[in-house]
Amino acid sequence: MVKSIWEASNDEYMLQPLTDEIIKKAEELFNVTLPNSYIAILKQQNGGQPICNAHPSPVPTVWGETFVIVEHIKGIGAGNGILENDYYIKEWELPEGLILFNGDGHTWLAFDYRDATSAPPIVYVDVDLEKTIQIANNFEEFLKNLYVENEEFDFEGMEVRVYSKQEFETFIQEDNIDELIYAIPDLAQGDVDLKWFGNQLLTLSNYHDENVRRMVANSVWNSLTYRLDDEILHSLIENFKNDDSEVRMYAELALEQMNYSYEQLKEDVYKRERVGFAFQDIIYHVNEHSNQWHLSDYQSDLQSFDSIEELLEQSMFDGKSLQEVWSHIKKVY
């Protein structure tokens, strides 16, 4: 009997109990053999929060000099399981052959099947820095190396450095490229004065350094298309379109989000693709679990329905249907 690695909690990553049929479906989908040690822990609990929340890293990461945080391990299933892998690979432009079992956008942990069909090494992926680093030779070694990071670490909400307006403007004045590359995504995801920040990004969208321009475009597409003032957003996109680098790609991605139609929503939901949208400062996720379809925020199910059709037809926003308020909705992902 394998010792349980799981916290005694019921979080969003805990899926329905694992069956041999689900395992077979996943291995056929990915055309690989999943690690026995991974299957073993999932037979105890199909995904969730591990007791040990950290793993050593040979390189500095966004969390510290010597470790990565393991906030969750995905189980096998749809929604918050590895069967949604293709969506994230495409959305974040990650290498084919990775199966992501931890992460939420900017950083990931993954089985690396690029050069293997079984016993894959475990890698840490930093999307913003475009780095992929091996941290364990296999998943069994990964499990053995997990440990509890010190008690002062804020596991529930990892705090990043808080940049002030003055600091950020000083980075621009001093041409401090390294600090700008770290500060831009942190501010984009935080509680920031959006009018001020949007104008700073407009300035930086014409910056001499391509890496800074790319980070501006990535952050706008990833975190700000549903938050920025439309006038600033359109000005940014025009600058991205005129760039002579891969920044142009982010203009197209941002426009896809801005022009996302109700018909596209229906199509994506019927294909069971992961969808999120914002309405009046609330981000809703469309997901399926417990034999129902749900509109959820980050913490709970806000509206639940017995079918996709009921969700599309009966969900209400300020007394109006989803289709009626669609012109006021912005796609998040």
Results as ranks from 00 to 15, higher is better:
residue 84 E to V: 07
residue 174 E to N: 14
residue 233 L to T: 07
residue 333 Y to M: 04
residue 38 Y to K: 07
residue 80 N to Q: 10
residue 258 M to Q: 13
residue 216 V to L: 13
residue 200 Q to P: 01
residue 128 D to T: 08
residue 142 F to T: 04
residue 116 A to Q: 06
residue 46 N to H: 06
residue 329 I to A: 10
residue 202 L to Y: 10
residue 317 F to N: 07
residue 42 L to E: 07
residue 75 G to F: 01
residue 290 S to N: 14
residue 46 N to D: 09
residue 222 N to T: 12
residue 196 W to F: 09
residue 112 D to G: 03
residue 215 M to S: 10
residue 230 D to G: 13
residue 225 T to D: 01
residue 99 I to E: 00
residue 215 M to L: 03
residue 79 G to K: 04
residue 271 K to H: 09
residue 69 I to N: 05
residue 9 S to A: 04
residue 171 F to G: 00
residue 274 R to W: 11
residue 85 N to Y: 02
residue 223 S to D: 09
residue 310 E to A: 15
residue 27 E to V: 14
residue 301 D to Y: 10
residue 308 I to Y: 00
residue 43 K to D: 10
residue 242 N to M: 08
residue 98 L to S: 00
residue 75 G to T: 03
residue 16 Q to C: 13
residue 111 F to A: 07
residue 302 L to P: 06
residue 5 I to E: 12
residue 149 E to S: 04
residue 254 A to C: 07
residue 330 K to A: 14
residue 273 E to R: 15
residue 55 H to S: 08
residue 270 Y to N: 12
residue 212 V to H: 09
residue 229 D to G: 06
residue 262 Y to V: 04
residue 40 A to I: 01
residue 98 L to H: 04
residue 34 L to R: 07
residue 177 I to P: 02
residue 108 W to C: 04
residue 286 V to P: 04
residue 227 R to S: 12
residue 266 K to I: 14
residue 205 S to I: 09
residue 100 L to V: 03
residue 322 L to R: 06
residue 53 N to F: 02
residue 204 L to R: 10
residue 55 H to N: 06
residue 95 P to R: 08
residue 116 A to D: 05
residue 275 V to I: 15
residue 299 Q to T: 15
residue 276 G to S: 14
residue 48 G to F: 12
residue 182 Y to A: 13
